[in-house]
Design a binder for these strands. Structure first.
Length: 548
DNA sequence: CGAATAGCTCCTCGAACGCT
DNA sequence: AGCGTTCGAGGAGCTATTCG
């Protein structure tokens, strides 16, 4: 089961480099390891570095060789102590080697084999609405990144965070902390240092990784590359001019580094069907395997101080085999659950709009499960903060006022971002709503906590989710068809679908996977042999960016 | 040769229809 | 009205063909 080997294990090798100059043999691999690993990014720089390293090595050997030659073969062995003569002979030896090296294309072809492509092929930026995994692992990992208060110490002093399923308490997911490239669980004190690095940036980067993972057919077997400057734009950091771009790049790199430290273990049994149950249990493994490559100008020590780009290579962990397995879901052996992420969520500022961001992330994941979007205020606040925050607000009127302010600001921001917020007329009266400036009566906090409201992500996400959900609740016949389609143009032609799909480089099977239909139907649609129902048409338009 | 696509067949489900 | 039958759309599985 765990047979696929982790490519990251390579990195711990090459710790000590034997001094090849003493043996008189130049070993290319030794030279490679002596070079700064950052050099591996740029073949030209590496070749230059290796050539100069090679020449230095040759010079030392050449001097030894020159002395030996003069002593043993020369007619004037006494000149073996004549430094000038030695250098002269050594220089000839060096020259004979370096001329060979200069014209040696074999040297570069060896490097071609040693090195992967210099600049990785990066994934394009995310669109405004993207599919995103919404399985329990996403909920639990979001808690791991944004809820430091939920981390605990077990009896052996290991730091862990446990997320139990609401419906079935036998199902749970646990997270641990490790050092990068390792799966040893770290004890509390060491783990704390990494947990301290967690936060909203980590959570947002995690969402971006997760969104790109949706593009992988078998995520647990594949890797993909992202460019940190794309991520900066997705975070909306490009508009902040107080920080240098290189600083932002390094922040992304260190955030990715923190993501590499999260482990996950799942014990999950879901569904009842003909084949029995889906067992989604994975032993402890990494959430993401991450490698970071920095590119830019080298300083004198061969390091990069101010990178002009950072490339992140991501390999999703084994959890995706059980929770993001399209083929497995078809054969009812694994899960493939996803919702949709509005890209603007990534741009919400965690410092000024923390609650809005927490709500947006939670609701993004939860909207697939809770189709009606109905929540009570207390429920949302409890998932966003620890319970103690609410208890403190109950005891201290200033904290209560503060909490109400934060809640109102969060709701106002979500409304501005196009989220659908409908206040329940009975439990959420006018005077309690964010826009009302009137003085609040006594006991308003309890009123607010028990108030009900409907929150849904911005259009067209609710429509997309609704069309994905198998309509178990009876749809009202006939009328629904006419009613469901009023606002947008939901027609697509067969050629539009085919052209858009090919433009994106998707196969019919891949599009079918996102639509939740068979590849065959996509084929029929593209040939114009099947009419496209409005819901599928709307999904196609969104997924494929089809304009009128 | 393997991945992508298309052809064929069969199943399911809801709407419409007809009979009692 | 209640029930069974028929029909067509939507969809899945298996497999043949095409294409790079």
């Amino acid at each position: 089961m765990l047979e696929d080997t982790n490519p990251n294990n390579k990195r711990s090798k090459n710790k000590s480099v034997p001094d090849s100059t003493n043996s008189g043999i130049i070993n290319l691999s030794n030279l490679v390891t002596k070079a700064d690993p950052n050099l591996l990014l740029d073949k030209k720089q590496l070749v230059t570095a290796l050539r100069s390293d090679f020449s230095d090595g040759i010079k030392k050997i050449a001097i030894h060789a020159a002395i030996k030659i003069i002593k043993e073969t020369s007619e004037q062995p006494e000149r073996a102590s004549d430094e000038a003569y030695i250098e002269e002979v050594a220089a000839k030896i060096v020259e004979s080697f370096t001329t060979v090296l200069k014209n040696n294309t074999e040297f570069e072809s060896i490097l071609d084999n040693v090195l992967s492509e210099a600049v990785p092929v990066v994934q394009p930026q995310l669109k405004t609405i993207v599919p995103i995994p919404s399985s329990a692992v996403m909920f639990s990992s979001m808690e791991a990144y944004t809820r430091k208060d939920l981390w605990q110490k077990d009896t052996e002093g290991i730091a862990y965070l446990q997320h139990r399923a609401k419906g079935n308490p036998n199902n749970y997911i646990e997270h641990y902390i490790s050092n990068p490239g390792d799966i040893t669980m770290l004890p509390w004190n060491e783990a704390q240092q990494i947990i301290d690095k967690f936060g909203f940036t980590t959570a947002k980067l995690h969402l971006i990784f997760a969104a790109h993972t949706m593009n992988q057919e078998k995520p647990w077997q594949s890797t993909f590359d992202l460019k940190a400057s794309d991520i900066i734009q997705e975070f909306g950091w490009d508009k902040n001019h107080k920080k240098l771009k290189s600083e932002k790049l390094l922040e992304i790199a260190s955030t990715a580094f923190a993501l590499d430290c999260l482990l996950v273990k799942t014990v999950w049994v879901e569904g009842r069907n003909k084949k029995g149950e889906i067992i989604g249990s994975v032993p402890i493994g990494r959430m993401w395997n991450i490698q970071i490559k920095v590119s830019g100008q080298f300083n004198l020590e061969g390091k990069i101080d101010n990178p002009d780009e950072v490339y992140i290579t991501i390999q999703p962990g084994l959890w995706t085999q059980d929770f993001l397995n399209r083929a497995g879901a078809k054969s009812r052996e694994a899960l493939y659950q996803f919702g949709y992420l509005a890209q603007q969520v990534l741009k919400i500022d965690p410092y000024h709009d923390e609650l809005a961001l927490r709500l947006a992330i939670y609701l993004t994941l939860d909207s697939r499960v809770r189709l009606d979007g109905k929540y009570r205020v207390i429920e949302l606040l409890e998932t966003a903060f620890s319970k103690t925050v609410i208890d403190q607000a109950r005891l201290d009127f200033r904290k209560a006022y503060d909490l109400k302010q934060r809640w109102d600001n969060a709701i106002i921001l979500l409304l501005e971002l196009g989220w659908l917020v409908v206040f329940d007329p009975e439990t959420y009266p006018e005077w309690l709503r964010p826009e009302c400036k009137d003085k609040k009566p006594k006991g308003y906090l309890e009123k607010l906590l028990s108030a009900k409201l409907t929150i849904k992500p911005p259009a067209p996400i609710p429509e997309l989710i609704a069309s994905k959900a198998k309509p178990k609740a009876k749809k009202e016949p006939l009328r629904s068809k006419a009613k469901a389609t009023p606002p947008q143009n939901t027609c697509v032609t067969s050629s539009q679908v085919r052209e858009a799909r090919i433009a994106k480089g998707w196969t019919q099977a891949k599009l079918a996977g996102f639509l939740g239909v068979s590849q065959k139907l996509v084929s029929l649609i593209e040939r114009g042999e099947r009419t496209v129902n409005p819901e599928i048409a709307a999904q196609i338009r969104t997924l494929m960016d089809i304009q009128d």
